[in-house]
Design a protein around this nucleic acid. Sequence first.
RNA 1: CUCCCGUUCGUCUAGCCAGGUCUAGGACACAUGGUUUUCAUCCAUGCAACAGGGGUUCGAAUCCCCUACGGGAGGCCA
Length: 459
Amino acid sequence: MSKVRVRFAPSPTGFFHIGSARTALFNWLYARHSGGDFILRIEDTDKARNTEAALRVLLEGMRWLGLDWDEGPEVGGSCGPYFQSERQSIYKAYLEKLQQAGRSYEKEGAIWFKLQGERYQTYDAFHKAEVEKVHNQSVVIEDAVRGRVERTEEMDFVIVRKDGSPVFHFVNVVDDIEMGITHVIRGEDHLSNTSKHVELFQALGATPPKFAHIPLILKQQGPGKMSKRDQGALIEDYAERGFMAAAVRNYIALLGWNPKDEQEKMSIDDIIERFDFAGVNKGNARFDERKLASLNTDYLRELNLESFCFLARPRLHSAGVIEETASEDYIQAVLELCQPKARSLESLPELCAYFFKDDFELNAKLLEKLTKKGDPRMLLREVLPLLSSIASFDASSIQSSLEAHASEQSKKVFAYFPAIRFALSGQSGGPDLLPMLQVMGRERVVQRIQSFIEANATE
RNA sequence: CUCCCGUUCGUCUAGCCAGGUCUAGGACACAUGGUUUUCAUCCAUGCAACAGGGGUUCGAAUCCCCUACGGGAGGCCA
């Protein structure tokens, strides 16, 4: 059997839609799984919206997801050019082939593909007009996902517009023939058009490739498939928001495919090894950002400190959280503390801003709640001398010192924690308190507790 | 209007092709409890589905038919 060749043929629109990304991913996975070639072909026939910037969004998105192509823009290949706008002479040659075979004709300035069979006139309710239809033989598609699909194409269709530009159905088929594509893996929205494509393959004397129509991704809420305008639809947004590419890739792989066991979090090598058409679902899948977020959290947690800092530091900087004077060691210590608690990189600046800024906000509601359990200033006054005088300001020393004090007062050490945390962060939650004290350092801790006591001194 | 594809917990899905082991499994979310002397972690438990009807069969989530619902296509868009 000849080498597998698959392609992803996007139209650069300026967005990299999650559905397109998933189609790209499935093609790429199949190529990598079977040791075949993955070809990137740019369908830039619509001149108006095809810009350099739009192409860049696409290529950057592909690279971000780790989907490398064996042939295509910037890497070349033996079947180029890989932009449809540069393949006009090829389309012209194929058009002549069709004309010679008597399978095309001109009408109203456009060129039509001619079906074979007995013709008849009939009224068509959809077109709301009298049309010519053909008693054509049905086309049978053995779809790798759906099994046998039978459909009959019964009307001629335009392959070259009045302005001379060839339409999608035609160029798509020509390119697939020219590029030796063996498997066409695409969204189910193309399933109904596949009969057109098979007719064209046959008329051009080519054997159609194998088809695999994958289910669509539906929007999170409401009816219909996901479109660019829907919440969470764009790959570049996830990149910007600090989602990990591996997590996004893992999640979209699971949207419409599963390995038939209970494993969900998989390395990319694992996914490549397990990917096959038998595991592709038939039903459409609804996109769920919460599950993506959960998977992303898992990926974030297992990052080593170095990688986590590498990803997190620029986000803290761009959020303006890190003050100029903060040392690299301090930043790293903070990130180490926060990594196990962080659910996303996106939330990280908010999560750890108080480590750097003294003017964090004291949540009034929390203070009220805290005060109900006992005056936090009283507790802090007890603790302050200890913290400022303790020999070594490390987590375990602080702990034993606080414990000793607490038992003298016949209190639990627990009683002091919320007040300390609140004075230091203005929050009720966060990283483990004792290591947090150690990281913040005596000076900062003492100073914050002092100013808390003063600022909230009543009457 | 026509054609094509689909339908299992709120969501993603396993099971279906080769009917019994399914009182339908897992994950996300949610709820409750526990642990964590803080917590956003972790653990446990709970909630929750075979679209409806008919048929075949000793037996149907699984096979067949019908209906309903959802999605897609029917462009000189891709």
